[in-house]
């Protein structure tokens, strides 16, 4: 597995490398594992290692309707964000990769920019804008905020998919009698479907995890899971939070596995 490393590293080097990797993996994984284990405690406060296994904190989370409503809000907002980001990201990616104008490249950088900026700057800019539009605290406000920061991910995955195949396919479709829309529908869309779906999943994940914009743009009715989590963290550190965190972790991991499976399938076999 480490093939060539052996020759370069030598025995002492190999042991050192193994220790380093083990320490790294421990550092990366341990904190998350601790949370998961603690969520199963039967105590009133967080203990590690848990003395007895119990699901009482999961039950407690389930019983508090606020958690459920926040989760439902997050799923709704995440789905709407994914749809909006896919639409905007795909439109921008098509224009930038196929438009054939030099000034489109800076436009591409502008589309990607929100990914690089601290969310707090975007948040304090969007807050008064939403007030002006009468959207403050609404679902639309949060969805729009999340779409601003999630679109770059869709843009980059879709643009990569568009650059990944010969643009002559679309030219060919046009000469064969397909108009602009049908060229997109019957050629471009089948070619980028995988990238589109992966971009959508990423966008959902970004929204599902986003805190800062939700703090400024969401209202009591539209509060998201990260925001509620944040509020609870500021007050107390109960095992309920560990249970909720574990559920969120599991859900995110599931999304990631879905995206990865899609990516693999796309890489291995040509699209049907």
């Amino acid at each position: 597995m480490m093939g060539r490393a052996d020759a370069v590293l030598g025995v002492a080097g190999r042991i050192g490398a193994a220790v380093l990797l083990a320490a790294f993996v421990l550092f990366l994984v341990a904190p998350v594992v601790v949370i998961v284990l603690m969520s199963f405690t039967d105590q009133l406060y967080l203990t590690f290692p848990p003395t007895r296994f119990a699901l009482r904190w999961y039950a407690s989370a389930w019983e508090q309707s606020r958690w459920l409503r926040a989760a439902w809000n997050s799923i709704q907002i995440g789905t709407a964000t994914a749809l909006a980001s896919v639409a905007l990201g795909t439109l921008s990616a098509l224009a930038v990769t196929r438009g054939g104008r030099r000034w489109l490249l800076p436009f591409g950088s502008l589309v990607v920019a929100p990914m690089m900026l601290p969310h707090v700057i975007i948040a304090i800019g969007l807050y008064p804008t939403m007030l002006d539009l009468g959207l403050s605290g609404s679902y639309a406000a949060v969805v729009i905020g999340h779409t601003v920061v999630a679109t770059p991910l869709v843009f980059t995955t879709v643009a990569a998919a568009l650059r990944g195949y010969d643009h002559a396919l679309e030219l060919a479709a046009r000469t064969l009698g397909a108009n602009g829309w049908r060229t997109f529908r019957f050629v471009t869309l089948p070619m980028i479907a995988g990238g589109l779906l992966i971009g959508g999943i990423f966008a959902f994940a970004v929204s599902f995890d986003e805190l800062m914009l939700a703090l400024f743009l969401a209202g009591p009715r539209t509060e998201t899971l990260p925001r509620l989590l944040w509020e609870h963290l500021a007050q107390s550190v109960t095992p309920t939070i560990a249970a909720v965190a574990t559920l969120i972790l599991a859900f995110t991991l599931l999304l990631l596995v879905a995206a990865e499976t899609l990516r693999r399938r796309k890489a291995v076999e040509p699209p049907p």
Partner: peptide, 17 residues
């Protein structure tokens, strides 16, 4: 698409799917 022209491309541009 309205010109009713047939065209053969350098790398054929066959739809792979």
């Amino acid at each position: 698409h309205r010109r009713n022209i047939g065209m053969v491309f350098q790398n054929y541009a066959l739809f792979p799917y």
